[in-house]
Design a protein around this nucleic acid. Structure first.
Length: 427
RNA sequence: GGAGAGGUCGCAUAGUGGUCUAGUGCGCCCGCCUCGAAAGCGGGUAACGGUGCAAGCCGUUCGUGGGUUCAAAUCCCACCCUCUCCGCCA
């Protein structure tokens, strides 16, 4: 949520920033008009209430003294009606403001280019050379099936199209990667590991803004009104919802593994083959609650931390700066990391790192104090995948495949696979 | 899932319709006292919103939402959460 006071004091700057995302300035003008109106109504109803509050003790005093209070009672009764009427109009103005404000996305950072999906800029090209093959590299679905790592048909049988059954070493590879990533971020990058609920209440999913962002994309248990997390991010926002963090608490750095469930409605048929787009996938997420003045650097750091996973797995990747029209609702700046998958011949997005500035914190009412007694401020919240598993698995299998259909395990991962150096078909 | 108890200021607790501007204790901050400290004494101690140059003033907040009333921490209804016991269960 944007700060109404910021809109009030610098409407033109907000308009200009939102214009980069293709937002029309009209909403800001509407908002400003409602705001003036709303504050007038507020003052009006508060004045009436103040008078009623003064009347109360006066009535009590007269009654105690055995005096006639009927005049005051009549006045108070009249005030009651006036207050009810005034508050009704105030409520309407509040709701109108709330509705408009809820529709406005975060303002993009200055460094974010205008435009849509096609305007993303490669800010960091791949440093690791793309592997040259002296044979025709296979796609991961062929490799994985050949190695007995996953079983797409039975995944479909279990839960329908878009669900995967990992088998044997495939299941172990998945578990190994999760553990490897968690360890890397916890031990080398200083994150605290959290074990999160995989479902969230309506209250939580609303506070994080994800009910708007994902909406019908989320799976949901009707009976308990619980939402299956589409990513760990909403859970991590809600960890400190409604709290005022003590001085010295920031930065808070959390890493968590969760499965992510997404309906991916309408995505059928497009880039969905194999592990590229599935309804349930594993992801390790890194998340920070940061001091506002440090969040720009934090975003760069977190992107590097996501890249560290890919470096360790010896995979070539590149970093993209997304254009304003392509970044998430709550984000002011987003960097995507894409890994090269030689079998499918595509760059696959495996991490998305976003600085949500104070946008999510305001909505979730998360604050911090710089020192004891200081005014509470909103921290900046940042999230980054570190990283999403299935596409990493795809790139890993495809990149490190050998002519005989086996796959060489990158050194960093070997301890997590019982020391295995190669994945080979079961004899 | 059933029964009971409970949710009040950072913590603990008081508060059964108007004198609650929510009391008291602890904690914390400031001052007095002291060479310094402890003890003692005095004062202060929230968030959010509106208004104002400011000091301040006003409003809202006693788990949440609704209701009754001229007036609600207090009465009524629903929901959420915590604790105890019972049931079920990895």
């Amino acid at each position: 949520m944007l700060d109404i006071r910021r809109i009030r004091t610098e409407p033109d700057a907000v308009k200009a920033a939102l214009a980069k995302r293709g937002e029309i300035a009209g909403t800001i003008d509407d908002l400003l008009a409602i705001d003036v109106d709303r504050r007038k109504l507020l003052t009006e109803s508060e004045t009436l209430k103040a008078e009623q509050n003064r009347l109360g003790p006066e009535i009590a005093k007269r009654k105690r003294a055995g005096e006639d209070a009927s005049e005051l009672l009549a006045r108070s009764t009249a005030l009651k009606a006036a207050i009810a009427e005034s508050e009704e109009r105030l409520k309407a103005a509040d709701e109108a403001q709330e509705t408009l404000l809820a529709k406005l996305p975060n303002t993009p950072d200055e460094s974010v280019p205008a435009g849509g999906e096609e305007d993303a800029q490669v800010v960091r090209p791949a440093e690791r050379p793309l592997r040259e093959f002296d044979f025709e590299p296979k796609a991961h679905w062929d490799l994985g099936t050949g190695l007995g790592l996953f079983d797409f048909e039975r995944g479909v049988k279990l839960a329908g199209s878009g669900f995967v059954l990992y088998t044997g070493l495939g299941a172990r590879l998945e578990r190994a990667l999760i553990q490897f990533m968690l360890d890397l971020h916890a031990e080398r990058h200083g994150y605290t590991e959290l074990g999160l609920p995989f479902v969230l209440s309506r209250e939580s999913i609303t506070a994080s803004g994800h009910i708007v962002k994902f909406g019908p994309e989320m799976y949901r248990d009707e009976e308990s009104d619980l939402f299956f997390v589409p990513t760990a991010e909403p859970a991590l926002v809600n960890v400190h919802r409604g709290e005022t963090l003590e001085p010295g608490a920031l930065p808070l750095k959390y890493v968590a593994y969760t499965p992510c469930w997404r309906r991916e409605a309408g995505a059928a048929g497009k880039d969905t083959r194999g592990l590229q787009r599935v309804h349930q996938f594993d992801k390790v997420e890194i998340f920070r609650y940061a001091l506002p003045e440090t969040s720009a650097d934090a975003l760069e750091e977190m992107t590097r931390e996501a890249c560290a996973v890919l470096d360790a797995l010896e995979l070539p990747y590149r970093v993209l700066l997304l254009a304003a029209g392509d970044i998430a609702f709550a984000a002011s700046k987003t960097l995507d990391v894409e890994v090269w998958a030689p079998g499918v011949g595509k760059w696959l997005e495996v991490s998305s790192a976003s600085n949500c500035t104070d946008f999510q914190a305001r909505r979730a009412n998360i604050r911090f104090r710089r020192e004891a007694g200081a005014k509470p401020e909103f921290p900046h919240l940042l999230n980054a995948s570190g990283t999403a598993l299935p596409r990493v698995v795809a790139a890993l299998l495809e990149t490190h495949q050998n002519a005989d259909g086996s796959v060489t395990v990158p050194e960093a991962l070997r301890p997590y696979l019982g020391g295995r150096e190669r994945l080979e078909p079961a004899a």
